[in-house]
C-alpha cells in the first residue's frame, strides 16, 4: 500500500507537470483528489488495514494529499499567471490609432468676441441692453443728434422700410431707448447686436454686420473715466502690454469725440504690415455723450454727463485672428467656423 501510495504520488506529480491549462489542472485535481479519486479510495480502504498501521498510513495519505494539493496550487498559480499574461498579450492594441472624436459644435467667432466683451463689462457692473433691429428713424438718427436733412442719414446708405422706419444702422438707438426708459437715472450698459448698411458686400464691407457699444451716464462722468475704461478693455482684448492712444475725431452723438488706437499687438509698435507701419491700430470710436442727446432723452446736460464707445466685432475678430475677408463671417463654411472654439492663452 505504501508503494501504491508513492507510485500514485509520482503519477499525480507527472500529471500536474503535464497540465498546461488551469482547466487540465483542475481535471487532475478532480481525478486524484476528488471524491471518486484514488486517494479517497485509498482512505476508504484503510478499514481493511490492521489497526496499528492505520494511523501511520492515515498520516502518510494525508501527507501525500497535502503535498499534492500544495503542488497543485503552485502549478495553478503559475498557469493562472501564464493565462493572464497570454490574455494581456492578446489584448495589446496600437495606441497610436485615432481616438473616438468628441463631436462638439463651435460658437461663431463674432459671438466669441461679443461675449468676451460682454463678460468683461459685466464684471465691472454693466448690464446688457438689446433693442429692435428694425428701428424708428427717431431712435436711429434724431435722438442721436442727427436731425432730418443731416448728410449722414442718406437714403442711399440705409435700408429704409418706410420714410420713418429703417433697419438700424448702428446699435446706438439702444442707447437712446435706454436713456429714455431710465428717466434720468444712472446707466451702465453694453449694447451688442446686428446692424445694416446699404453697402455692396466685398472683402471689407458687409450689408449686415455687428456692433457692440457701451454707454455710461451719471453725475460726474469724465473723459478720463472713458480713457481708463478703454485702456482696460484694450488690455483685456489684446493683451496686458497694450498701450492706447486717443485721437480727436467726430461723431454727431458725442462731443468731444475720439478714436482709440492700440499699440500694434503684432510688432509691439515698431511697425509692421498689420499696423501699416504706424505702430498703432485703430480699434474703436468713442466720446462724451453730446448734450443734445442727453437733453432729448430727458437728462440735464449741465448736471449729468456720460461717455459712449462703439466697435465692430468683425474688425476685432479680423485683427485678433488674422481673418482677411469679412464675408467669411456670413458664409458659414464649417471649415471656417470650426476654428474658433479653443483657448487662446
Amino acid at each position: 500500500m505504501k508503494e501504491q501510495l508513492h507510485e500514485l504520488k509520482e503519477q499525480v506529480m507527472e500529471k500536474i507537470k503535464q497540465s498546461n491549462t488551469v482547466k487540465e489542472l483542475n481535471d487532475v485535481r478532480v481525478a486524484y483528489l476528488g471524491k471518486k479519486g484514488p486517494i479517497t479510495d485509498l482512505l476508504k480502504g484503510m478499514g481493511k488495514l490492521p489497526a496499528e498501521e492505520r494511523p501511520k498510513m492515515g498520516a502518510l495519505v494525508n501527507e501525500i494529499r497535502e503535498s499534492v494539493t500544495e503542488i497543485l496550487e503552485e502549478r495553478k498559480e503559475v498557469l493562472e499567471q501564464a493565462a493572464i499574461q497570454e490574455q494581456l498579450a492578446k489584448e495589446s492594441i496600437d495606441v497610436t490609432l485615432p481616438g473616438r472624436p468628441v463631436e462638439l459644435g463651435n460658437h461663431h467667432p463674432l459671438t466669441r468676441v461679443v461675449e468676451e466683451i460682454e463678460d468683461f463689462f459685466i464684471s465691472m457692473g454693466y448690464e446688457i441692453a438689446e433693442g429692435p433691429e428694425v428701428e424708428k428713424d427717431y431712435y436711429n438718427f434724431e435722438a442721436l443728434n442727427l436731425p432730418k436733412g443731416h448728410p449722414a442719414r442718406d437714403m442711399q446708405d440705409s435700408f429704409y422700410i418706410t420714410e420713418d422706419i429703417l433697419l438700424r444702422t448702428h446699435t446706438s438707438p439702444v442707447q437712446a431707448r435706454t436713456m429714455e426708459a431710465k428717466e434720468g437715472s444712472a446707466i451702465k450698459i453694453i449694447c451688442p447686436g446686428k446692424v445694416y448698411r446699404r453697402d455692396s458686400d466685398d472683402a471689407t464691407h458687409s450689408h449686415q454686420f455687428t456692433q457692440i457699444e457701451g454707454l455710461v451716464v451719471g453725475e460726474n462722468i469724465r473723459m478720463s473715466d472713458l480713457k481708463g475704461t478703454l485702456d482696460l478693455l484694450a488690455k483685456k482684448l489684446f493683451g496686458a502690454e497694450r498701450e492706447i492712444r486717443l485721437r480727436p475725431s467726430f461723431f454727431p452723438f458725442t462731443e468731444p469725440s475720439v478714436e482709440m488706437d492700440i499699440s500694434c499687438f503684432k510688432c509691439g509698435g515698431s511697425g509692421c504690415n498689420v499696423c501699416k507701419k504706424t505702430g498703432w491700430i485703430e480699434i474703436l470710436g468713442a466720446g462724451m455723450v453730446h448734450p443734445n442727446v442727453l437733453q432729448m432723452a430727458g437728462y440735464n446736460p449741465e448736471e449729468v454727463t456720460g461717455f459712449a464707445f462703439g466697435m465692430g466685432p468683425e474688425r476685432i475678430a479680423m485683427l485678433k485672428y488674422g481673418v482677411e475677408d469679412i464675408r467669411h463671417f456670413y458664409t458659414n463654411d464649417i471649415r471656417f467656423i470650426s476654428q474658433f472654439h479653443r483657448a487662446e492663452a
Binding site: 465691472m124 457692473g125 454693466y126 451719471g218 473723459m223 480713457k227 481708463g228 492712444r245 480727436p248 462724451m288
Partner: peptide
C-alpha cells in the same frame, strides 16, 4: 472742450474709472 483737450493733448488726459454707486451688472 474738445478744442482745448485736443490742443492740450489727449495723451495728457489721465486714466480713471467712473466713481459713484457700484451696480451689480449681469445678464
Amino acid at each position: 472742450i474738445e478744442e482745448i483737450a485736443r490742443l492740450y493733448g489727449y495723451d495728457e488726459i489721465p486714466k480713471t474709472l467712473p466713481v459713484g454707486e457700484s451696480t451689480p451688472g449681469g445678464l
